[in-house]
Design a protein around this nucleic acid. Structure first.
Length: 632
DNA sequence: GTAGGGTTAG
């Protein structure tokens, strides 16, 4: 066995004691030592010498290590000689492939590509496995030029019929943005399997071509759980949660069982839609299938419960987790912030620091949100300063947005403006929009005009900005300016997004659009509203018609506000759910001021908890007060 | 020994 190496010079070890010592060891101990022993060809030669002296078989050498240690040194050939000696155990290409794999999947995929060229230089003929590992390296690096070379090699070596390699090549072209090329290859492939289709679907989704993805999905001859999950997750990622849920239902119909990844995707869709019923069902399914220890599932569950307004349930999931990552903590902090529970969010953050979890940028967005929603200005400033100073996190535009929101909401409009002007990057619509929104609350027309100037340049078709500006003018009694804004919108064909609210009763989602009477129960809803109104008036409720933009007479305005979508949804909920149970409503825009004060009163009158998730945050009404403490 | 889908913000 050692004969092949007998003519090869074995270096003298500088440490004779060590050799002497090794001599007395059993080969088992020697093996353990060897694993830790060499990190250079020189040391390898020493170990080699020890092996020869102790008569241990050369095969105890960790061959991948041998390869990696020699790969980029003049001892390359020495490694080859060692591989030759143990060839019966593992062929040379096998060993080199272990090295390539380790490099390709590790921190230095570029070294895998280098090693590949080295192998060719030493006349090692690549097999399919080697090609696969190097393609993996190209994929991880998104290295198209080397990928093309590899593609050529695969063709030249006659591996065209190898499905594994063809799939990787398609994947590579697609990931590098060469979709047309990927598509061509895909169409020319002599055979495809479900993986090929799945790769194409996932890549189309990544590039935003959901229609193309769905086309392939509906055409593919056979779908497995990954195909379904890719489509579902793709829909969730592009904000089409409804389509995701629809597809999930079809998947269940088709009898395909979901796995852990599907669970994550569906839960994320439930979070977006506020679909608590389905979310809870998936939670149960997840537990029954032993997914309880999956951290990503738990993280998504926290988010789902948070966004469905069940903070306590989110806390329970968080408490029960055996292992928590920065995502778990951040989801919890962000969730508490959304519900206006700033003190708890800050406490969770300190718990997190105590257990030694490093925060990331998202954690700070949650913290800044918490401060912003509750007016904790100094704490917010401290966090903003601390993120770079203590954690080396460079604030992104989102963090600046939070700070502008924090300052301007608190009425520090000048400081907020100053802050925007000093930002190291170009402020976006979110940043100026935060300032504009606060200008309304603090009735500052001048600053609003400054903000709108920038917003019009950035995003001239966003109706929200015009609506706020027009409100600001209206509240200042500047009706001519209000009219001017309206005309401006009309000229540019900007339409106000209709407000809608939804409520789920017995698993059915009921949607209400402001001013529309499309729901079959509209008649009864109006009737019940009138009754409620009587009770509310007795408690001092006066409709706040300043939220109505239209230039119409007061009586009409009152009628207008009473037809707001959140009010319709609430009344429907009161009529169709058992007394005492919480009512959960979702709204696409921010809740209006009149609805906010009305809901406070109603919560006391009917003695029920009303949870409203609006575009920005949660409002939890109880006994004539709101969790936002009217700061929003 | 080789190929495909997942979590927090917005």
């Amino acid at each position: 066995m050692l004969c092949a190496l007998s003519s090869f010079p074995i270096p003298q070890s500088p440490n004779r004691n060590q050799i002497h010592h090794v001599k007395s060891q059993s080969s088992e101990t020697l093996k353990i030592d060897l694993l830790r022993s060499f990190s250079s060809p020189f040391e390898l030669r020493q170990v080699h010498a020890q092996i020869v002296k102790t008569n241990a078989p050369l095969s105890i050498l960790p061959l991948t290590r041998v390869g990696l240690v020699c790969a980029f040194t003049p001892s390359f050939h020495y490694a080859q000689q060692i591989f030759e000696c143990v060839e019966k155990q593992k062929p040379e290409t096998f060993v080199w492939n272990s090295c390539l794999k380790a490099l390709a999947e590790g921190d230095s995929p570029i070294d895998a590509i280098m090693l590949f060229y080295r192998l060719r230089q030493y006349d090692v003929c690549p097999d399919t496995f080697i090609c696969s590992s190097v393609l993996r390296a190209c994929l991880n690096l998104l290295d198209l030029s080397n990928g093309r070379i590899l593609h050529g090699v695969v063709e030249k070596l006659g591996f065209r019929s190898n499905l594994y390699l063809q799939n990787m090549i398609v994947h590579l072209y697609a990931s590098c943005g060469e979709m047309a090329e990927a598509r061509l290859l895909f169409e020319k492939m002599p055979q495809r399997d479900v993986v090929t289709w799945n790769i194409m679907i996932a890549q189309l989704i990544k590039q935003g071509d959901h229609e193309g993805a769905y086309d392939l999905f509906s055409w593919m001859p056979e779908r497995n759980v990954r195909s379904w999950t890719s489509m579902i997750a793709g829909y969730v990622q592009c904000g089409k949660a409804k389509e995701a849920i629809h597809l999930f239902a079809k998947m269940e119909e088709a009898g395909v069982k979901c796995n852990e990844v599907t669970v994550v995707a569906v839960l994320a869709a439930c979070a977006d839609l506020g679909a608590l019923d389905l979310g809870m069902r998936i939670h149960e399914y997840s537990n029954q299938h032993g997914f309880k220890r999956n951290v990503r599932i738990s993280n998504t569950l926290i988010d789902m419960y948070v966004k469905c307004g069940c903070l306590e349930e989110a806390c329970r999931v968080f408490e029960e987790m055996e292992e928590r990552t920065v995502v778990s903590w951040s989801a919890m902090i962000g969730g508490l912030a959304m519900h206006g529970r700033a003190e708890e969010a800050l406490r969770i953050f300190s718990d997190m620091s105590q257990v030694g979890i490093e925060p990331n940028g998202v954690t700070f967005i949650g913290l800044l949100h918490a401060c912003s929603h509750m007016g904790l200005i100094n704490e917010g400033r401290r966090f903003f300063a601390s993120m770079t100073r203590d954690y080396g996190i460079i604030p992104q535009i989102e963090h600046y947005g939070c700070m502008v929101d924090l300052l301007s909401r608190a009425g520090l409009l000048r400081e907020a403006h100053e802050f925007i002007l000093n930002m190291p990057m170009k402020p976006n619509g979110v940043v100026w929009g935060a300032l504009l929104g606060a200008c309304r609350v603090h009735k500052n027309v001048e600053m609003a005009e400054e903000a709108i100037k920038h917003l019009l340049a950035l995003d001239p078709l966003n109706d929200g900005y015009y609506v706020v500006l027009s409100n600001i003018y209206a509240e200042a009694g500047r009706w001519e300016d209000t009219a001017r804004v309206r005309k401006f919108m009309k000229d540019r064909q900007v339409k106000k997004t209709p407000g809608w609210s939804s409520i789920t009763v017995d698993g059915v989602v009921h949607e209400f659009v402001a001013g529309e009477e499309s729901h079959p129960d509209t008649e009864q809803i109006f009737q019940r509203w009138e009754e409620l109104l009587e009770e509310m008036r007795l408690k001092g409720y006066v409709p706040n018609t300043s939220v109505v933009l239209l230039d119409i007479e007061e009586g009409e305005k009152v009628k207008f506000v009473s037809r707001h979508s959140e009010k319709l949804a609430l009344v429907f909920g009161l009529m169709n759910t058992p007394a005492g149970t919480p009512i959960r409503i979702m709204k696409n825009l921010r809740i209006c001021e009149d609805c906010h004060s009305a809901f406070k009163l109603i919560s006391a009158i009917v003695n029920r908890e009303i949870v409203v998730r609006d575009r920005n945050r949660f409002h939890c009404f109880n006994d004539n007060s709101c969790s936002c403490r009217d700061y929003w």
